[in-house]
Design a protein around this nucleic acid. Structure first.
Lengths: 342, 342
DNA sequence: ATGAAAGCGCTAACAG
DNA sequence: CTGTTAGCGCTTTCAT
């Protein structure tokens, strides 16, 4: 049933110009809302464009102007539902402004991250929102190569020498809220689970945690783990297999996603969460309150992070200066945290 | 700290040609691996390109060839984690082949879906993987306008007149497995929760369900709900508020995401899942086994769906004919389904 | 085997 | 106010 298999001729500006009896240049001016064209002509061109169902050919515009009309969003990974709402907020905000979005996931690989930045440069993305991993080279590559707007997501201390917009959750407050909550329950052997240091994503959380440990005099143990769920389960299994007398009684995680790895490991070892060990998540995913036991976690407005990143980018495109947005956090106490075991 | 604020000159093919002392044409031939250029020259050009860190300018290539080197993935929504793994599989497969990916979410809006298809056409995506909502106009628009490869995801009966690749979970088997399981537990008043008919996403599930109801002589009630979580909660609340003697005792849902809305409503109304009502999810998200009670669900390989869609697209780009992939499902019985209440 | 030149669709000078 | 013209970086005839 090959109705019209031939390649459809694209309708070009020239077609619109011919249809409305003006030059291509005039048509371009009319459609782009620039002065130098009379109102009746503008209307005529617009009508013709609508009639022909004309859509500007993005690659031609990009080639000519160096602007693609799309911005890029490069995130750390696409397994953790955290980023879903970030993407949603970002996407919705850009869509509203008629700006295209290109999404890429580095999947926690520096190599992939670098590749994607190159791709975005080659595709002439007009701006980049980046949740970086690695040492900041991606951010530098982008800035050096393009000079175009950049906003860093969830990486407060990242590439401090770069004067860019930043949007992130208040991770200092988040760690403090989690630790305070656990100290209040009598825990002393508290551990923080964080991404490997060379991934840098959790530097600020680690620093804050260490400061709090020093301040309150508890043994602040930092456990590094790859952010893949199965890897986190392995790490959790090995820590929970340590002698009960010395292993941590409470865990502060960087996401509900990773927190669920502790549920997995605990189930495997016959340990009861909320009793044998306490767990604090981060993100408050919609399913977290229905876990058994329900997960104590740090609530953040993920959608707002995405919106903020998009806005920062678009403001810069409009010539506004760089800006920062720190999104507040709230601890939601539920069943996964209980008194420290005797 | 504006180190080099000026717009960096992009390195073009002309630069590479000059650097290696050949013409642009020769350089193009050399880099694209076409015959008509001697081996020493080819090597010289490649070296020069590497030295200058040359990357082809995508918009110029696209303008000239009509191929952007990227394929598009248009999904129904980005709230349900189901699509996360689909995206991952799709993305990973394309990345491996050096093909770019443009992702868009229709967010269950036909209008948005149409807009995105237009965008993808204008951006000259080389192929489209589409999980459609609405009546199939998006698929037609794409095919008519471009004649380029199209693969339909999770919409077996969608636009049957279109000869395109299809990749989907075996939703007939999924519904059958769920219903059989519930019948085995003694349930009779079984309800199916589905997306509104005009969204068409669940047509096949609904049809199968109705057939099974007729076959086994149980009252097959179909409850339509928007696929937004909060809307699903509202729907669940109103159904569960019906008299216990007549309301459904079991629910078959189209996703774990929507199933959790029933958890929410049940908690609100003081009903116990697995006792007062049974719930079957769909997708087996990683958190589903930790819900309280753990969720009986239909396991599907989401990653594989994404991989399959990408492969089908790339095969077609290489001239292969359209193909179909039906991904099998497995019911995982857990705590959310129990014997029908007396 | 190599180079010159045309042109993809569009925008931005410039000329009328 | 409007039309003519020159490219953006690349691929692809067509000469050489």
């Amino acid at each position: 049933m090959t109705d019209t298999p031939q390649q459809r001729r694209r309708v070009s500006l020239a077609d619109v110009a011919r249809e409305s009896g003006v030059s291509v240049a005039a048509a371009s001016f009319a459609l782009n809302g620039r002065s130098g064209v009379s109102e009746p002509v503008r209307q005529r061109v617009k009508d013709a464009a609508a009639r022909l169902n004309y859509t500007p050919w993005t690659s031609a515009v990009a080639l000519r102007t160096g602007r693609s009309g799309a911005v890029a969003l490069l995130i750390r990974n696409l397994r953790n539902p955290f980023f879903l709402d970030v993407i949603n907020g970002f996407d919705a905000t850009c869509a509203e402004a008629g700006i295209g979005v290109i999404i890429g996931s580095a999947d926690y690989s520096s190599k992939r991250e670098a590749e994607l930045v190159s791709t975005f440069i080659a595709r002439e993305a007009d701006g980049l929102a980046l949740a970086p991993i690695g040492g900041g080279s991606a951010a530098h590559t982008w800035s050096k190569a393009t000079g175009k707007p950049l906003v860093l997501i969830n990486s407060a201390g990242h590439a401090p020498e770069l004067e860019v917009s930043r949007v992130h959750v208040d991770s200092i407050a988040a760690v403090r809220q989690a630790v305070d909550h656990l100290l209040g329950l009598g825990h002393r052997r508290i551990a923080l689970i964080a991404a490997p240091h060379d991934r840098s994503a959790d530097d600020e959380r680690v620093d804050t945690f260490r400061e709090l440990a020093a301040l309150h005099g508890f043994p602040g143990r930092v456990i590094e783990s790859e952010m893949r769920h199965d890897r986190a389960v392995d790490v959790a299994l090995s820590v929970l297999a340590e002698p009960a007398a010395t292993r941590p009684t409470a865990f502060v995680t960087n996401s509900d996603y990773i927190a669920s790895a502790l549920y997995f490991a605990a189930a495997e070892l016959g340990l009861v969460i909320g009793v044998d060990l306490s767990v604090v998540g981060h993100d408050d995913l919609s399913t977290s309150r229905f876990l058994a036991p329900s997960l104590t976690t740090i609530a953040v407005d993920r959608f707002e992070i995405g919106v903020g990143a998009a806005r920062a980018l678009m403001n810069q495109l409009d010539g506004a200066p760089v800006q920062s947005l720190v999104s507040p956090t709230t601890l939601v106490a539920r069943g996964s945290t209980g008194p420290a075991p005797a």
